[in-house]
Design a protein around this nucleic acid. Structure first.
Lengths: 241, 241
DNA sequence: TTTTTATTTATTGGATCCAATATAGATGAA
DNA sequence: TTCATCTATATTGGATCCAATAAATAAAAA
């Protein structure tokens, strides 16, 4: 099913998002093609695609570099995510959820409850909650019945910083992360409550606030990148925490 | 300055946005390349670029078609534009405008005032107001100091329906259009007032409402497209009316 | 020593060839 | 007549060649 050309794009995207290709690193067509074992053609297309996704920056005549982002850009991107996911929550409330959607969201909320009754959190819990979180947001975006939201998010979603800010966590401070994730889970409950009660404005406000909760990580991420450190990252996500 | 490859993309984009290539029309690489007088390579890249911009839809094994959009998609896209431009207005208010920005916005508002004291409108006025409007929105987006907003908008902005809905007007009902544009102009005044007074929330609310004013055109556009008609279009714009 | 200019080199962009693939049409059997 | 299968054709995807271009470097003049 997977076409080789798409694989080149995916592989490069993965290498960027995972940090294997550091921010600012230069990429030329010929060495990249040799490294991936393909010709220049698919690499050329991949570079252009990734440039459009905002992962690469073109240097005229000297190939591409992995896009470098400032802390201000990270924060701005989080704000954009906030209004888009807020709109999704509003429209989901206005359209009402299907029974299946309502049921799956309830199941996800219950799984989260089980996680947080323990009073502490480890890396495995984080990975699990990451999946729960991702699915929770995905359902609401789908329930908005507005494909333009997903389209607009898909741009942000691929940005390395957005990805990182959404799923990064400080493994040296699990107690703090427990509080953060627990609070996020309570916000999920509140969003669900607002949506199922048809309170579009309230759902929008809570969801926007929820997305903005990752702002602190923009700062942390920038600092770590300056010092060459890498944040702990679970994998790629498509939604704010 | 213009590279030939970029020209192929621009030309195709223009043909789509102007309606020369009708919605749903099929495009293959070889005929398109011959028609444009280039080889398949730049056309291939252009097709992929335009697909990512949302202008083309890929048919596996049979090339591309000019993307077809439903009325619901148009409305959804207007909502997305609304929250993004609303966010821009809020952040512009929070950051405060530069003196240059404030001055240019005032000049634009005054030009609009001059237009609407006449009490009626013709096509030339519409073209002029279109430019004023576009620049007005552009300045606010710049003043937000949030490049992610422009990035997110640039996706929507290229969609044929978004473009049409933003700048279309009914040339058979100029009296109605006069009222609509006049009201939009008053909203511009209100947005400017809120921004310069540092009222971020108010600026956001007005701007969002302002963007949503184009909703009626989604319906009109869909109807006209069904019947094969083309709406009167000034040229491409990058902002809501 | 500094600045300008010329030359080399690295790198992308376009054209074309060949291979892979999917669709459409034709042919045959039920 | 209808369905399945096979074949032919249209079309994209990848590889490679050549040309254009921009950057880096070397050389020469001020």
């Amino acid at each position: 099913m997977n076409k080789p050309g798409q694989q080149v794009i995916s592989r490069l995207r993965q290498m960027i998002l995972s940090g294997d290709l550091a921010s600012g690193q230069r990429l030329a067509e010929i060495p990249t093609a040799e490294q991936l074992g393909v010709s220049r053609t698919p690499v050329r297309i991949a570079f252009r695609t990734l440039e459009q996704e905002g992962l690469l920056t073109k240097l005229s005549g000297r190939g591409y570099i992995v896009r470098q982002v400032t802390q201000a850009e990270i924060s701005g991107s989080i704000e954009v995510r906030g209004v888009l996911e807020g709109l999704a929550a509003r429209q989901a409330a206005e359209n009402s959820l299907s029974n299946e959607q309502k049921h799956e969201l309830l199941t996800l909320l219950r799984q989260g409850d089980d996680l947080f009754v323990k009073g502490s959190i480890d890396e495995q819990d984080l990975a699990l909650y990451h999946d729960i979180n991702q699915r929770f947001h995905q359902i609401i975006i789908e329930a908005s019945l507005n494909p333009a939201i997903a389209e607009a998010l898909s741009r942000n979603e691929h940005l390395p910083f957005a990805s990182v800010s959404a799923l990064a966590f400080d493994q040296n401070n699990l107690a703090q992360e427990y509080r953060r994730f627990n609070f996020a889970h309570m916000q999920h409950h509140a969003v669900f409550d607002a949506i199922t009660n048809g309170q579009g404005s309230r759902a929008e406000a809570i969801m926007r606030e929820h997305a903005n909760a990752t702002h602190g990580y923009a700062k942390t991420f920038s600092k770590m990148e300056e010092s060459g450190e890498k944040m702990q990252v679970l994998n790629n996500v498509n939604s704010a925490l």
